[in-house]
Design a protein around this nucleic acid. Structure first.
Length: 215
DNA sequence: GGTAAAATCAAATCGAACGT
DNA sequence: ACGTTCGATTTGATTTTACC
């Protein structure tokens, strides 16, 4: 696996590093990191920096002040990093977090080589599918779906929809029929849901499906 | 058999000293 | 001023033990 998991603290340090370098052009000192995280010892910072270094997130120059550097952007030019923000399932309540830029809400991320998918990278997020309501659209339990943020949809598009009454998000095909909306499961055994446009909020459109067949 | 309490072990943190 | 190291301490998770 490409990515080792980071602890919350390491995430904090990493994003602080990124912001600091972004702002001042130079990396912060150990003590500045310490202060910003409210720690009482620099050794904690050192400890976590070592962890980060081992996992390949940073590089450190020994003997030099401000010797931390980020190995040029984990995200290389031809790779798009997409946050996996949660699980989507017909019927059960799932929040799609608003602030996708906050790493804290990411369950995980996936990296997709741009040559595999013809994508604009902005507004993308991914969800793990739970349930079988979309089997006839080649989406089944356990699949990873890549979505793009959107507030509107055309008829026939597959969208993630927030159902105001159920307080849930679900994946369905979208059809606007007169003054109501039909949310059609792509599963012959399941019935469509009819809702008023006021009761739903479109979260995003389906962009791609990733299915793992075996390990 | 099931579980709460106790023991154990590793990871994380601290505070201070030391090195450049 | 800044980075590094080290022993002691705390915290958290895991395993073992003891008891009903």
């Amino acid at each position: 696996m490409a990515k080792d998991k980071l602890t919350a603290k390491q995430q904090q340090i990493l994003s602080f590093l990124q912001e600091f370098i972004q702002e001042y052009g130079i990396p912060p000192t150990v003590r500045e990191i310490q202060r910003s995280l409210g720690l009482s010892s620099t050794s904690v910072v050192d400890y976590n920096l070592k962890q980060l270094e081992e996992k390949g997130y940073i590089t450190r120059n020994k003997n030099i002040s401000r010797g931390i550097s980020l190995p040029f952007k984990k995200v290389e030019e031809n790779v798009t990093t997409i946050p996996v923000v949660g699980v989507i399932a017909a019927g059960s309540p799932i929040e799609v977090p608003e602030d996708l830029s906050d790493p804290a809400v990411w369950a995980d991320t996936i990296e997709v080589n741009n040559s595999l998918l013809n994508l604009k990278s902005d507004g993308l997020f991914a969800l793990r599918v739970k349930g079988h309501s979309m089997v006839d659209a080649l989406i089944d339990d356990g699949d990873l779906i890549i979505m793009r943020h959107a507030n509107t949809a055309e008829n026939g598009e597959t969208v993630a929809v927030w159902l105001e009454k159920e307080k849930a998000t679900t994946l369905k095909k979208f059809y606007h029929e007169g003054d109501r909306i039909r949310l059609q499961p792509a599963n012959i055994t399941m019935q469509p849901i009819y809702v008023s446009p006021d009761d739903i909020q479109i979260q995003g459109k389906l962009v791609a499906v990733i299915r793992q067949i075996s390990k």
